[in-house]
Amino acid sequence: MTETAQFKLGFQDSLSVGLGIFPLGIALGMLAIELDLQWWVAPLTSLIVYAGSVEFMLLSLFASDASLLTIAALVFAINFRHVFYAFSFPLHLVKNPVARFYSVFGLIDEVYATYSGKDTAELTGTRVVTMQVISHLYWLGGSLLGVVIASALPVDLHGFEFALCALFTVMFIDAFSSRRQLPSSVLAGIAVTAGMLMPGDFDLLLSLLIFAALLAVRAVFNYRSAKGPALGGEV
């Protein structure tokens, strides 16, 4: 198959992703203006951070003058899951070193969901990277459009910062509605409660760390439970 055909397939693959992330990019740009940040903050984070929901959190942290240590720790804790994406993502198809570096950078949830279950025989590096680049442009373009819309509106957008809370609330409800994720939802509630009871101003960071620890314990327990019958069987 020609390179042109692979570009077209990558573009087609990006359409479903764009339908989801372009409107969120608009919301990100509008949120930046509502928080009285410079117009370029949202597009810049979209360009160099490109981490979806983390960017909403970053804008709020920037507006509240949070410390760099707090920002770094929160971003690391929230996005650590991306480390494991490479185990089942077809990065081996991307041969060019520069393109592979970008492919690692552009490995967002939606891209992973699109390609992780596909037969690698159907994919090429060109198709994968094309899809990632165009998806990135959707996000960047959405944030730019959001800045333009918010700047042009004659009314105050007071309260729009609730978009971050609303986003995570919808994600939580979606996870809670799945019985498979019910234990994780309960553990999240325990972690948040414990974090809020801790002294100091790092309740969010502490909650994330506690939640990560609880998830690790749950993973070990599930692994041992799954291996238990086989290890305890007759010789």
Rank of each mutant, 00 (worst) to 15 (best):
T4M: 06
Q6Y: 08
Q12D: 01
S14I: 03
L15R: 01
V17G: 05
G18H: 02
G20Q: 04
G20W: 02
F22H: 03
P23N: 02
L28M: 01
A32F: 08
E34S: 02
D36T: 05
V41Y: 00
A42I: 01
L44N: 07
L47G: 14
Y50F: 15
M57V: 12
L61M: 15
S67E: 11
S67D: 11
S67A: 10
A72E: 05
A77N: 01
H82T: 03
A86Q: 07
F87G: 02
S88G: 04
L93P: 04
V94K: 01
A99F: 00
L107I: 06
I108N: 01
E110C: 09
S116C: 09
G117E: 10
K118P: 09
T120H: 06
A121T: 12
A121N: 08
E122S: 07
Q132I: 02
V133K: 00
S135E: 07
L137Q: 07
G146I: 08
V147G: 05
I149M: 13
A150R: 03
S151M: 11
A152I: 08
A152W: 08
L153A: 15
P154L: 13
F160V: 12
E161P: 05
E161S: 14
F162E: 10
A163H: 05
F168W: 09
M171T: 11
A175K: 12
S178R: 13
R179C: 11
L182A: 14
L182F: 12
P183A: 09
P183I: 00
V186C: 10
L187A: 13
A188C: 04
M196V: 01
G200I: 11
L205V: 13
S207Y: 08
S207W: 08
S207P: 07
F211A: 14
A216Y: 12
A219M: 13
V220P: 13
Y223F: 13
Y223T: 14
Y223D: 12
P229C: 04
V235K: 14
V235A: 15
